[in-house]
Amino acid sequence: MTETPHPDHSGQAITIQKVDPILSTGVVVSTTAQLPDGRLEDRHAAYHDNISPPLRWTAVPDAKAWAVVVEDPDAPQEAPFVHWMIWNIPGPARGLPEGVANTPGLATPHGAVQGRNGQHGFGYFGPLPPAGHGLHHYYFQVFALDEAIDMGPETPLHDLLNALKARTLASGELVATYEAPTRQ
């Protein structure tokens, strides 16, 4: 049986490149889990503790809900690898804490829904670039929404994307990097 070869990198655009926000103002996204060189701290990688990093973002007037999508377009597959999809984060929120539980529904933030990541689990799945594949870029994309999204945790990214296209007031992103650890 012959396997179909994977490309070196995805050829598709990431989610934020497919959404045209209503407002021209952007959202500034930050984290304390990024080192000065842009690298994500080890504890947030699947090679280590695999816990979601804390995220902060700036306010957007009239935002009723927020969504976060994390993708790696450097993954050796057709589409960017989905590391995290979470939506219906309450409008007053200005971020997410470190270590959000990997469950479809969340008590904190109340009402938030998490979809499946590229490993088919719910919630965050940290960087796990293949050894020797070089530096990967992880796009933490944040969307301010004019209303909550009425979709459950089994929603695939393409359906979430369509909802984001219809509801995004403003968006922003943070790009972190990670490379497979070298063997010693």
Rank of each mutant, 00 (worst) to 15 (best):
H158S: 14
L128R: 14
I14R: 12
R56Y: 11
A131F: 03
L106V: 04
H137G: 00
M1Y: 10
P129S: 08
D74W: 07
H120R: 13
T58R: 10
T155R: 06
T177G: 08
R116C: 01
A63E: 06
L96P: 03
R56K: 11
E98S: 14
V27D: 02
P7F: 05
H110P: 00
G38T: 03
H9G: 01
W57F: 15
L40T: 04
L145F: 09
Q114N: 04
L128A: 14
L96Y: 10
E173A: 14
P130G: 10
D150M: 01
P181H: 05
A163L: 04
G99L: 05
W87P: 08
Q17P: 05
L164Y: 07
A144D: 03
A59V: 01
G95E: 00
N102I: 00
S52Q: 09
G172W: 03
P73T: 03
A101D: 14
P181C: 03
L157Y: 00
T155D: 01
P54N: 10
H6W: 07
H137W: 08
L157S: 04
H9T: 15
H137L: 06
P109L: 11
E3G: 10
V60R: 00
A59H: 11
Q114G: 03
S10P: 09
Y139H: 15
T177D: 01
A170D: 05
E179K: 10
N50I: 08
H137K: 12
H136D: 02
G95C: 06
